[in-house]
Design a protein around this nucleic acid. Structure first.
Length: 481
DNA sequence: GCACGAAGGACCC
DNA sequence: CACCAGGGTCCTTCGACT
């Protein structure tokens, strides 16, 4: 289609803000886990198909993660490709890849010219910023990140022994949320459509999600967490950060033993296994919890040398907040490890926004927040459903009504209200369009949500609906607070 | 010139 | 046989307003 899909948004290329206006990350500011966003991506330089398999999200599904001893990765990629090609989803991925290629090329142009310049004056400024980051280093806490192993799948196996030792996944034909380790041997992973997983592993058993059950188990493990840190931070149903510094003061035990004990209690009380990472801050603990998965733990000592030796060779992709797009940008600059981030800090500084620079540098130094708190104010509440092709406005309004009712009920449960309603349209070609509207007064009733949503749809319907042929459309409501 | 609402993305689980 | 979720958070850029 037209190139109006290529939004004109810039990347994190930044010469805007000069280094001196750097401000510290405030104590309780944000999740330090959030990386740069809205960055472009790189991609193929040439031939379509194979490049796409290799470079895009599609190919990525097969590689990366562990657990593929049994099956040939190339074979997995091939099967996924065969199942995906020609689908609307895949075409959209291709289109995004192309857009990213273009942006990446522009970035590289800038990068090449940068390399020819004399950056010695910038150098000292950048080194200064690194010093500032270094001063934030705090090694006085013992932070633990606990992550349940294949959580949903393990619960289902626990409750239905006939599923054990067989490849199985939780989800449905359109999307899997978790797969057990047997299934991973076939290349079946979370966030993979069930029908594709079936092609990789015809014997795969898919069991539907049972969130009520997962929530109940989550409650159990959280109770255990609270014994060690009443202010633990839950990140999702199966994950949490704990600061066990205080707890350690009360007993004569090593951090390792305490975490063993936590995992033992989890196992005793839920019959499920967990993995954990122990380190000086959340960033490092999170990375560590993945190292000896499943049913294992890893301790990184609170010591600058150990931390630097640990982080330097680490692939940038291991940093939470660096995803596929950012990884490819960095790779294009020949930055593959955290050590390379530091080595190229001047270029990073010139190529990215100051906030991205700060994020990259701190990650590469192994510096992160060690603030662990329970309180959390939600910023939005949403509901979304994907449904097949609607052609008439009235059909949309009907969906709107259903979703508005649900959302209102959820808002009531938490006594929430908001001022902004956002509607996201998912077109048949997988392009997403969002239109939102803010109002003066706080609202929360189904009628208010419906009426505002209806206006938003009405205004945009002629511009959006005709764009697609038929098939699926989706509405999302977001009520911001 | 600024604070802010709106739209689009990147990422995470 | 067939055709890729749903819930959240944060960051950037743009432009109408004052």
């Amino acid at each position: 289609m037209e190139s109006d899909i290529l939004d004109s948004h810039g990347f994190l290329i930044g010469e805007e803000l000069e280094g001196d206006d750097f401000h510290y990350v405030e104590e309780d500011q944000k999740n330090e886990n959030i990386g740069p966003s809205s960055i472009p991506y790189p991609s193929s330089t040439g031939s379509k198909n194979n490049d796409l398999i290799r470079n895009s999200r599609i190919g990525e599904l097969a590689s990366n993660k562990a657990g593929l001893q049994g099956i040939d990765k190339e074979k997995v990629k091939q099967i996924i490709y065969e199942a995906s090609k020609n689908s609307a989803f895949y075409l959209n991925e291709e289109k995004k890849d192309e857009a990213l290629s273009i942006k990446l090329k522009q970035m590289m142009k800038k990068y090449e010219s940068l390399k020819k310049q004399n950056l010695s004056t910038i150098n000292s400024k950048v080194d200064n910023l690194v010093q500032v980051a270094e001063r934030e280093r705090d090694l006085s806490h013992i932070i633990v990140h606990i992550d349940m192993d294949a959580f949903y799948a393990s619960i289902e196996e626990r409750d239905n022994p006939s599923l054990r030792n067989k490849p199985m996944a939780v989800g449905d034909n359109s999307m899997l949320t978790t797969s057990n380790y047997e299934a991973r041997n076939y290349g079946v992973r979370s966030a993979m459509p069930g029908f594709i997983a079936k092609k990789l592993c015809p014997e795969l058993i898919i069991v539907p999600c049972n969130f009520d059950k997962y929530r109940a188990v989550s409650k159990q493990i959280r109770e255990i967490f609270s014994r060690y840190d009443p202010d633990y931070t839950p990140m999702s149903l199966d994950e949490a950060y704990l600061d066990i510094t205080k707890y350690l003061d009360t007993i004569d035990e090593s951090p390792d033993n305490v975490v063993e004990q936590i995992r033992r209690e989890i196992h005793e009380e839920t019959k499920l296994t967990a993995s954990a990472g122990i380190a000086a801050n959340k960033l490092l603990a999170k990375i560590c919890s993945d190292l000896n998965k499943p049913n294992g733990q890893y301790r990184l000592q609170n010591n600058v040398d150990d931390i630097m030796n640990f982080i330097r060779p680490l692939s940038v992709r291991k940093i939470p907040g660096i995803g596929r797009v950012t990884e490819r940008i960095l790779n294009e600059m020949d930055i593959k490890t955290c050590g390379a981030i530091l080595d190229n800090r001047v270029y990073i500084h010139q190529m990215f926004s100051s906030s991205s620079f700060n994020f990259f540098i701190r990650a590469a130094l192994g510096i992160g927040s060690n603030i662990v708190k329970t309180d959390h104010k939600r910023k939005s509440k949403s509901i979304s459903r994907t449904f097949s092709s609607l052609s008439k406005p009235d059909d949309l309004y009907e969906k709107l009504r259903e979703l508005a009712d649900h959302l209102a009920a959820d808002l009531l449960k938490e006594r929430l209200q908001g001022k902004t309603i956002a509607i996201t349209f998912k077109l048949v070609n997988f392009k997403m369009i969002t239109r939102e509207r803010s109002v003066k007064k706080y609202i929360h009733t189904a009628d208010d949500i419906y009426n505002i949503g209806k206006q938003v749809i009405f205004i945009n319907i002629n511009r959006i609906i005709p764009l697609q042929t038929f098939e699926s459309t989706l509405i999302t409501f977001i009520n911001r607070f």
